Computed example of a mutant assay.
Amino acid sequence: MSLMMLYLPALLLIALFLFSAIKILREYERGVVFQLGRFWRVKGPGLILLIPMVQQMVRVDLRTIVMDVPSQ
């Protein structure tokens, strides 16, 4: 019983680490990855694996936004 109580917090930390490392980009999105605050790479659509606390990703939407411009 005490062995399970020892491993449970470690398993939860590993699960949270893996959950925060996986990102999914849609077909119309790109991800700009920063490593330690500096530009590193542009990632395409699909499954992206990041190193938490070292890498950050900003999503960029490539869809065209159409706006009505009122006549003056």
Rank of each mutant, 00 (worst) to 15 (best):
R41E: 13
E27G: 09
Q55N: 02
L25R: 04
F17N: 09
A15N: 06
I22N: 06
R41S: 09
R59N: 08
E27A: 11
A10E: 04
R41C: 05
R63S: 04
M4Q: 12
Q35W: 07
G31M: 13
V42Y: 05
I65C: 00
Q35D: 09
L6T: 03
P52I: 01
V66I: 08
Q35C: 09
Q35R: 15
G31C: 12
Q56N: 07
R41T: 10
I24A: 04
Q55R: 01
G31P: 06
M5N: 13
I51S: 10
P70Y: 00
G37M: 06
F39I: 07
S20R: 14
I51K: 11
L3P: 03
I65P: 00
V60L: 10
L13F: 13
V69L: 05
I24C: 12
L18Y: 14
I48E: 14
L47Q: 03
V66N: 03
R38K: 15
G31V: 08
L47A: 04
L8F: 13
R41M: 12
I24M: 07
P70L: 01
S2H: 12
L3N: 14
L50I: 14
G31F: 12
V66Y: 03
G46F: 07
V42I: 15
V33K: 00
L49I: 15
M53N: 12
G31A: 13
R59Y: 08
Y28H: 15
W40E: 12
V58W: 00
Y28A: 10
Y28E: 13
V60E: 15
A15W: 09
Q55H: 00
P45F: 10
L25M: 09
V69W: 05
L13M: 14
Y28P: 03
F34W: 14
F19D: 11
R59F: 07
L36A: 11
V54Q: 12
I24F: 12
Q56K: 07
R30A: 05
L25H: 01
F39H: 10
D61F: 06
A10R: 09
R63M: 07
F34V: 05
Q55W: 00
R26H: 12
V69R: 04
I22H: 05
M53V: 13
V69Y: 08
P9D: 05
I48N: 14
V58M: 02
R30K: 14
V54L: 15
F34I: 06
R59A: 07
A15P: 01
S2A: 12
I22S: 01
Q55G: 00
V33N: 00
V54A: 09
V54D: 03
S71F: 14
S2R: 15
P9V: 06
I24S: 07
L18S: 10
V42K: 03
S71R: 11
G44W: 11
L16W: 02
P45S: 14
R59M: 04
G44V: 01
Q35P: 02
L49S: 09
A10W: 01
D68W: 01
E29K: 14
V58N: 05
M67L: 08
M4G: 10
S71K: 08
A21G: 13
M1S: 10
L49P: 04
A15R: 02
